[in-house]
Structure formats: C-alpha cells, structure tokens
Design a protein around this nucleic acid. Sequence first.
DNA 1: AAATGTGGCAACCGCCTGCTA
DNA 2: TTAGCAGGCGGTTGCCACATT
Length: 332
Amino acid sequence: MGRSPCCDKNGLKKGPWTTEEDHKLIQYIQIHGPGNWRTLPKNAGLQRCGKSCRLRWTNYLRPDIKRGRFSFEEEETIIQLHSVLGNKWSAIAARLPGRTDNEIKNYWNTHIRKRLLRSGIDPVTHSPRLDLLDLSSLLNSTQFNLSSLLGLQALINPEIFRIATTLLASQNETPELLLQKLQENQLLNTQLQNAEGPELLLQKLEENQLLNAPIQYQPQNFQANYQFQIQIPEIPTFSTPSNVPCSSSQPMQLGHVESYLMNDQMLLPQHYGYCASDDSNFQSLNNSSNQNISLDSVLSTPLSSTEDEKESYCSNLMKFEIPASLNFDDFM
DNA sequence: AAATGTGGCAACCGCCTGCTA
DNA sequence: TTAGCAGGCGGTTGCCACATT
C-alpha cells in the first residue's frame, strides 16, 4: 500500500495566515528545518495542512525572500527567461535569487504582460501581434497555415516576410498572377504596368534582385521548377538563429523560408537570443556590424527608468540577434 | 460620501510526477 | 508491481486597498 494520508483535511483552517500562525511556523522551522510537511502542522501546533504550510513558507516566510518592487534588471531577466522558458515560473524563479515563482507569476500577469501588450507584443509568443501586421498577402494565399507563421514573422523583417510569403504563395500560379500579387503588395521597385508576358516578368524580377539570374523562361516548367531567391541587400535588421541556413551576407533561399514555414523546424519564439551580460547562461553579442539595439546599451540606461523607457525596451527586445552558441539545454 | 471599478497579491485548487510502503 | 501519497507546479480565485465616478 501507499503512504498514509498527509493530514485529515476536515477541520483544517484555510484562508489568510495570522501572525500567530506565522510565528509558530517560523519557530518550528528554525528548530527542525523545512521538510516533512506531512507531520509539520501537527508538530508545530498548526491547524493547517502541510501543503498550506509549505506554500506559506516558500512564498512568504522564507528568510531569503526579497520583498519590494522588481528592479529593471529583474524585469528584463524575467522577460528574457520567459521568452525561452514560457510559463515555467519555478525555472524562472530559480534564476532570480530571492524571488518566488508565485511572486514572478503575479508580477508577470499584473505588470509585464500588460506592458508587452501595450507595446504590440504578444506576451505568449513574444512576437509582434498578428492583428497589427499587414497580412494581406498571406490572406490571399491558400497554401499557408497561418498558425505556423506565428513564430517566424517575428524574426524576419516584415518587408522580407511579405516578399517571401507572396512569392511562395505564387509558386503554383501563373506568372501573370504572380506579377499581379507583387504589384498589389508593392514589392517591386520598378513599374511593371507595361509588363508583357512571363519573359518580361522574369527580367523585371531579376532587375529587382528577387530571383536567381539568369534563368531561361520555359513556359512548361515555370510553375513547377522555378527557384525563387530573395536578396536582402537593404534590409536594416534581419536576425536569424544559428540553425537557420542563411545569413545577412547570403541570400535567403525561398526553399528555406518554405521549409521553416511548413515543417516542424519552424522557428519558435523561444529561439530568441538575448545578451544579459551578467548571466552566464546568455552570451554577449558583438553587434558592431548591425543596427540592432544591444541589451548592454539598454542596461546602461538609468535604473530609474520611466514606463515609456521600459515599453521602448520591450519593443526593442524583438530586434536582438541570436547567439550562435546559445545552449538551450542550460535552461531546461 | 457612497458606489463602483481596478490593481495587486496571497492563497487555494487541481493536476502531474516521483517516491514509497 | 502498484496503489496512493507528498511535493511541486501553473492556473485561478478572492480579498483588500486604492482610484474613479
């Protein structure tokens, strides 16, 4: 048989703890130490169940608990860890000395979550909210599973994302339809109003560096075999994790976009990288060659930051690069 | 001044996992 | 081997204080 019940739940007190109960619990634990919550209430003279005693101790009475407002650094850490760990409050609390999982959870729900929402960031996915984006090109497509895009659209510049999705959606369509969509979405720099036929379309696409060139137009295999390539020469910020087979110096093949959109290797919001320099679990990044706002620069701002500054910071969170050596096993 | 709304947070609930008799 | 409990965890509730109408 199993263990005997920890306590008889009948007649046990519930609700807020009195100072007298707190004193009893503290006194008992100071002598005997925490643990053995099954017998603790009886031995300590408390009309509580062991579970209630454990929660009261771990969430409130523990001497190493840090009370008071969360600092800016703590808030940053929570946001960063949440983007990796999700609602694993205990895991987050383990990296915030003096804070309990319950406290962090409450702070997230009452403060951080609202701030992220005000900044247009989905607090669950840590991505810009879909309802704030221009999704016209996606909505025109029947090939996309929109839910699979949730993680990717945060990591790709919206302009690139629109180009990729439009081209991808048009792979099985006629060149005329593709041309129409590109024009509708204003994805080509040059005027194509006078474009006549697929040959000219290819030429214009090549001029706009959207395609691998040169490729001979063959009407019979255009739809099935054409390899689109997206050049990203003028995209100011384009961050990708190390496991994505492309970089800012290499063209991103549409096939890569497609594979990440369509299969289980899709980028997840948890793959965001941050550079919390004080935490050995994070890697400091060399941002000298890009325009991203580094966390170091954010950290250098006065600690008595305003709410607006915090909101600005939350928005900038979406622009960080992914450290190549980030080991996610460290967080799990 | 009273009623109502809102925010913050301690505590509870219920589920899951691992342990143990 | 397995039933059942302790401990741990995330989600939710309810109370209290303060703000607003």
